[in-house]
Design a protein around this nucleic acid. Structure first.
Lengths: 85, 85
DNA sequence: GAGAATTTGTACGTATGTATG
DNA sequence: ACATACATACGTACAAATTCT
């Protein structure tokens, strides 16, 4: 899975979709840490604001929760969005 | 009302508090536009992301709603947070 | 316990795109 | 055509808390 810079879909949504897929497929389970902002920056070649946008989006959707200065983790199943499966 | 850079309170929260006070005092009413990002940038001498952060915060709290590429406006009273009055 | 590395938080700068008035 | 305004995105920097060595 990688991002497509010619796809008009915003990069932050493309990466969010990748992570959601990993969660949904069980590759990332509840309380597992998702990739850190720095990891996203280096792995996808994006800026940090974009990485933060990914996390903010996933958090708003209920996929993850963040503990300040520790990390961001997969939320319990019952907090996941209902419409996207 | 102005911001205090020696106050450890984040600038975006200081400005949000100013705007909330203006809403609560009736200076800004439902459907009135709040100051634009650019206005905040110039009036408070802050950066763009900080201004965006102010707006995002107010939106998350239910004080305002944003119409893409038009502006951000004071939300109806019944959407305001309940704890802060 | 000390110090380094990691990670998120905050903040400013800059640029381009796109829609509206 | 132009100004306004939000959306997206990269770059940079430092702070603060946590985790690792």
């Amino acid at each position: 899975m990688t991002i497509d810079r010619f796809d008009p879909t915003p990069i932050y949504l493309q990466i969010a979709a990748i992570i959601i897929k990993r969660i949904w497929q069980g590759d990332l389970e509840t309380r597992d840490p998702i990739p850190s902002e720095s990891q996203m920056v280096t792995e996808y070649g994006i800026g940090r604001e974009t990485a933060r946008h990914v996390v903010a989006h996933l958090r708003e959707q209920g996929w993850v929760f963040t503990i300040a200065r520790r990390g961001t983790y997969v939320a319990p199943r019952d907090q996941w969005p209902t419409g996207e499966r």
